[in-house]
Design a protein around this nucleic acid. Sequence first.
DNA 1: TAGGCCATCTGGTCCT
DNA 2: AGGACCAGATGGCCTA
Length: 181
Amino acid sequence: MKSKRKASKRNRKTSVENDQEFQLELEPASSDHEGSEKSLNLGGKRRKKSIDNGMASSANRRKQHSGVKGGNVRRLESNERERQRMHKLNNAFQALREAIPHVKTEKTLSKIETLTLANNYIKSLTAIILGMSSGCLPHAEGEESSNASKLFQHYQQQLEEEDDGSLSNYLTQIHSFREGS
DNA sequence: TAGGCCATCTGGTCCT
DNA sequence: AGGACCAGATGGCCTA
């Protein structure tokens, strides 16, 4: 079903990798699951399913062949740490999703959508704040106001250079996300 | 069925 | 030396 597509994805690999995989494919199937049980238990459900189906991933095969005694345990521990790290990253993404206002839909924002929206949201807020504060800046004499003025000039210049219309861009994106859902 | 998105594994590199 | 970080590879799930 997906073999064609997966094959096309695999074509991105280098010829060296293809050669290695070809050789590994010739390995006896009985060795495929060695060392994969622990990571299976530690891993998420999605990964578990693939292994439940009896599919030995190339990753597992690589693991099989890179296994030095003791190194295997270290690898599994490293995998677990990496999983935890990615979970933290995903939690941060979730927090970011909740921090930026967007049209509520059943479909959650993808990571790229979240980052793009957050970027433009920050820019739009910056533009608004600076716009609100700009009124009192010209007559300011204190150092604090002077800094604010510099800040305002800096961002104004930045916005001019980017010329992307942050606020309208942000609103446009929200609108497109709404339509896309 | 193709494409998008995601989770996981892995080896390399950087950092402490 | 070992952990953190990163990017590539891969397979699963979902949707148009």
